Simulated scan of single mutants.
Amino acid sequence: MVEKFELGDIVEMKKQHPCGEKRFKIIRTGADVKIKCLGCERIIMLPRSKFVKGAKKIIQIQEN
């Protein structure tokens, strides 16, 4: 479970995308979280609660 995350962070999800990739980049936060698959570059929008439960860990933190 990931509690703190910001735009640009790369997270590993518990379940993989149909393309086989588990890493996603956060491109929007709010009540919903929009993530982009790093394998096929598709965009997925999840409710924040579902994203927090499904995120395994932060792989790379976006630096300013």
Rank of each mutant, 00 (worst) to 15 (best):
R48Y: 01
H17W: 11
I61L: 11
I44T: 06
Q62W: 10
E21T: 04
Q60P: 15
L38T: 02
G54W: 00
I27W: 09
F51T: 13
I27D: 09
I26A: 14
C37T: 10
P47C: 03
A55N: 01
P47T: 03
E63W: 15
G54A: 06
S49Y: 12
F5S: 12
I44C: 03
I43W: 11
V52R: 00
L7Y: 13
Q62S: 10
I26F: 15
K4M: 07
R23H: 06
R42A: 02
L7M: 13
A55K: 03
P18V: 09
V52M: 04
K50P: 07
C37N: 09
V2M: 00
N64E: 06
I58V: 15
S49I: 05
I59P: 12
K50I: 11
E3G: 02
Q62M: 11
L46F: 02
P18H: 10
G20L: 01
G8T: 13
K14H: 00
K4F: 13
I27M: 08
I59A: 09
K56E: 15
L46V: 00
L46S: 02
K53G: 03
L46T: 02
E12I: 00
D32G: 04
A31L: 10
V33C: 05
Q16C: 01
N64R: 11
K57M: 03
V52K: 03
P47A: 02
E41T: 08
R42Q: 05
K4C: 13
R23D: 10
E12N: 05
V2P: 01
F24E: 14
E12C: 05
H17N: 09
I61Q: 15
L7G: 12
V11P: 07
K15Q: 12
H17S: 05
N64M: 04
V33R: 08
K14F: 00
K56W: 01
G39N: 01
K25W: 10
K4Q: 12
R23W: 07
G54E: 08
E12L: 06
H17Q: 05
Q60L: 15
R23F: 14
I44Q: 07
R23L: 13
K57G: 01
K4D: 14
F5E: 13
T29I: 12
K56T: 10
M13N: 11
P18Q: 09
T29N: 05
H17Y: 12
K22E: 09
G20I: 03
Q16A: 02
A55V: 08
P18A: 12
D9H: 15
Q62C: 12
V33E: 04
C40H: 08
R42D: 07
K25N: 01
Q16M: 03
A31P: 10
M13V: 10
I44H: 06
V2H: 04
R23S: 12
K56I: 10
R28G: 00
C40T: 10
F24M: 15
P18Y: 11
Q60C: 14
I35D: 08
M13A: 07
K53C: 04
I26L: 13
V52P: 04
K4L: 11
M13D: 08
G39D: 01
N64D: 08
E3L: 06
